[in-house]
């Protein structure tokens, strides 16, 4: 793996909350142009890792480099982040949210947003506050995918939504993935997502315990990633 090809480099990343260690000297490099799945159960450190990458959480020790820079204003301009919660302001309608993304992210593509809104069956005049959980998730994903970002970070994009919405979300992700961008997706719902990954990394108690090319792992272990996940965490 060549160094210059890594969009993300994480070295000895440690995060402690008081006595609790959420990330423990974690190392991970992510190659440009790949879809990587960060797989682990709740509480394994997935969201902590992602929040540090998104620039809203500070590490205790170690180093994170995204496209050559530590998380900050520049990385926020090239990272499109889908948090595991509704992050839009409650007073907004969808139009406001689109305006805001257009104002702040130069890589925002309104045409793409329109396509996605149609696909998700969302209207610009809907109020954010009145949307169901599944619809909020779809709206958030619409905004995040409408950017032509270098790095997409999706935290549990299909957790807690109904099967129909889940399929729509998966379709939207695969249909809108730009081949020269990189996507980092966390999930514990491996079965639904495993065919989307180039690479997978299993995270447990704040450490990466297994990582590699998804197809290679399938071949080596002669089992699906989902079964491998169950074997590791089951």
């Amino acid at each position: 793996m060549e160094l210059a090809n890594n969009i993300v480099e994480i070295n000895n990343l440690t995060k402690r909350y008081g006595n609790k260690t959420a990330l423990n000297k974690l190392n991970l490099n992510i190659q440009n142009g790949k879809i990587i799945g960060i797989l682990g159960p709740n509480g394994s450190g997935k969201t902590t890792l992602i929040k540090i990458l998104a620039g809203i959480l500070r590490q205790t020790k170690g180093e994170v480099i995204i496209d050559g820079y530590s998380p900050g204003i520049y990385t926020k301009s090239i990272v499109s982040y889908l948090p595991d919660r509704n992050f839009l302001y409650n007073w907004m309608n969808i139009q406001d949210a689109i305006d805001m993304f257009k104002d702040f992210y130069t890589d925002f593509d309104e045409g793409k947003a329109d396509e996605l809104l149609k696909f998700m069956k969302l209207d610009r005049d809907m109020k954010v506050d009145g949307l169901s959980k599944g619809m909020k998730e779809k709206l958030n994903l619409t905004l995040v995918l409408s950017r032509k970002a270098r790095l997409y970070i999706l935290d549990e994009p299909i957790a807690g939504v109904d099967p129909v919405a889940r399929d729509q979300i998966l379709d939207a992700i695969i249909n809108n993935y730009e081949e020269n961008s990189t996507m980092l997706i966390t999930t514990h719902l491996v079965r639904d997502m495993e065919k989307m990954f180039d690479e997978v990394a299993f995270i447990s108690e704040g450490e990466i315990i297994l990582e590699g090319n998804a197809d290679k792992l399938r071949e080596e272990k002669s089992m699906q990633i989902d079964d491998l996940y169950k074997e590791i965490f089951g």
Partner: peptide, 8 residues
């Protein structure tokens, strides 16, 4: 999560 991920 929105405010502090804006590139400002």
């Amino acid at each position: 999560y929105l405010t502090f991920t804006l590139p400002i």
